[in-house]
């Protein structure tokens, strides 16, 4: 059963002097119960707009969206939903306990249930000792934990997390990731909205890449990361011509890559495992010794950058606020991940 569904969802914001900016352009999306779904995209791609439409904070210009079987944006659709927004502000005069108590009341919990749930969620985010501290004195990390506690308060079936680990130190990230994994194990659906690819990669099992208000790629993480299997073959000996001839005999126009002395290294693009074995047989038949075979998986970062570049090339996709902003922030995040290599 899908807990989130959008059909041809569009949002156009009216700008100054009558200008219009398209934030979302026909988004079709389905997220099933218990899934950890990551919505990726550069800054300004429309990720937050999509989440806000689902939560009723922003009205859609066109299309349909449902959340837990109800029309998105209606109060009833938000009954079993937790939301941790990227930008949040809690009144500084309230303590952590009072913030959660207010939200418990807004969820219609009675006093006993509120007390139980507040104890539980504060413990879950490791903030029990901060219960009576005023929020005004909280660090960013503490506010982040409080926001997570508040999102978990209704024991939600769906948890929306907008940049959940933004600005958090590495230990804090590990901790938040652990909390989210535990909730995932309990059957909750996670919808993670982020431009931090590493975080999404560690948490989600299915992702969509949103660029310029359109979903350009979507699928299980594993399939997105390895659309065409690629291998790296290391052959003993320095005779590059012999190796190239052997690979050519197997139908491979292999590309040589820099190698240590006494070895040649080749990049192979093969359709499947049997094709790889044919290449290996041909190499050995030519009297060459194989030092190592490695499978190279495209990292999510590469898929992400490629998707953005494709979108840039798409003339029809030009303009709009969802336009890809190759901002310093986006570029920094993208450069963090590395290409992954598995030994075969």
């Amino acid at each position: 059963m899908n807990v989130i569904e959008t059909r041809d969802l569009a949002k156009t914001f009216g700008g100054a002097l009558g200008s219009k900016v398209e934030a979302l352009r026909g988004v079709d999306l389905q997220v099933g119960a218990g899934e950890a779904f990551g919505l990726l995209g550069p800054n300004g791609a429309g990720k937050t707009t999509l989440v806000k439409i689902l939560l009723g904070l922003v009205g859609a210009s066109d299309g349909d969206a449902t959340l837990l079987g109800h029309r998105a944006g209606t109060p009833i659709s938000r009954l079993e939903v937790g939301y941790m927004p990227e930008r949040r502000h809690y009144p500084g005069f309230l303590t952590a306990g009072q913030v959660l108590d207010l939200f418990g009341k807004l969820l219609g919990m009675d006093a006993t249930l509120r007390r139980q749930r507040i104890d539980l969620v504060l413990e879950e985010v490791e903030m029990s000792s901060w219960r009576n501290q005023k929020v005004g004195g909280f660090s960013k990390g503490m506010q982040q934990r409080l926001a997570l506690a508040q999102a978990l308060l209704p024991d939600p079936r769906v948890l929306f997390l907008d940049e959940p680990t933004e600005g958090i130190d590495p230990l804090g990230r590990v901790s938040i990731r652990g909390i989210l994994r535990r909730n995932l194990e309990q059957g909750k659906t996670l919808f993670v909205n982020s431009h931090m690819l590493g975080e999404v990669e560690l948490l989600c099992d299915r992702v969509a890449i949103l660029v310029k208000g359109k979903i350009r790629r979507e699928g299980p993480l594993s399939s997105l990361r390895a659309p065409n299997p690629e291998y790296r073959l290391t052959i003993a000996g320095s005779d590059e011509d012999a190796a190239r001839a052997a690979l050519a005999a197997a139908g491979q126009e292999a590309e040589s890559v820099p190698a240590p002395p006494g070895l040649t290294v080749w990049r192979l693009e093969v359709g499947d495992r049997s094709e790889l074995n044919n290449v290996l047989d041909a190499t050995r038949s030519a009297g060459l010794e194989i030092e190592e075979v490695q499978r190279v998986r495209a990292s999510l970062e590469e898929v992400f950058v490629q998707t953005i570049n494709e979108a840039d090339d798409d003339k029809a996709g030009a303009g709009g606020p969802g336009g890809v902003q190759t901002s310093a922030k986006g570029a920094t995040e993208v450069s963090v991940a590395t290409r992954e290599v598995d030994n075969v």
Partner: peptide, 18 residues
């Protein structure tokens, strides 16, 4: 105006609240 402060209105209006 305080209710409509960015970050606070998001939290309030995303509750099951008309």
């Amino acid at each position: 105006p305080l209710t409509l402060q960015t970050g606070w209105v998001d939290l309030l209006a995303s509750q099951p609240l008309g």
